[in-house]
Amino acid sequence: MSKTVIVYTTNDCIECTMVKRVLTEEGIPFEARDISKNPAFQKEVEKYGFLGVPVTVLNERAVKGFTNELKEIIELAKS
């Protein structure tokens, strides 16, 4: 099973910056996908049932925002 974390983001999103900072501090590599630069990324976000960012995904588990659910992604990524 892949451990690739994907963060859907935009450059002017404070919560996105916070998510990326926490992942970096936790030593979790991630791929940032900027929805403002690639419309296909927005479609991917919508596939998970969300309209805005940040959306953090690991193994089809998606969480929106900078919330406690993000901790679940971090723990999954570390395991």
Rank of each mutant, 00 (worst) to 15 (best):
V57D: 05
F50S: 08
V53Q: 09
F41Y: 15
V57I: 08
E31W: 00
I28S: 04
T56F: 08
V53C: 13
A40H: 10
G49C: 05
K37T: 11
P29T: 05
P54Q: 11
L58M: 09
A40N: 13
Q42H: 07
E44W: 00
S36F: 08
V45Y: 06
G49E: 07
I28V: 12
G27V: 00
G52D: 15
K47Y: 15
V55N: 10
K37Q: 14
S36M: 14
N59V: 06
P39H: 00
L58N: 08
I35K: 01
I28W: 01
I35H: 00
T56N: 08
T56L: 09
Q42K: 13
V53W: 11
R33Y: 04
L51H: 13
R33P: 02
S36E: 14
R33A: 04
Y48V: 09
V55K: 07
P29A: 09
K43A: 15
I28A: 05
S36G: 05
V45T: 09
Y48E: 09
I35L: 03
F50V: 11
E44V: 05
G52N: 15
L51V: 14
A40M: 09
E46G: 11
V57S: 06
A40L: 09
L51I: 14
P29G: 13
L51Q: 13
F30K: 01
K47V: 12
P54Y: 10
Y48K: 06
E46P: 06
F30I: 00
F30P: 03
L58T: 07
I28P: 03
A40P: 02
F41V: 03
P29M: 01
V57A: 05
I35G: 00
K47G: 15
I35N: 00
G49I: 09
E46W: 01
E44Q: 12
N38E: 11
V45N: 05
I28D: 04
P39S: 06
G52I: 08
V45W: 04
P39F: 00
V53E: 10
P29H: 03
K37H: 05
K37I: 04
S36W: 14
F50D: 10
E31Q: 10
K47Q: 15
E44K: 01
K47W: 12
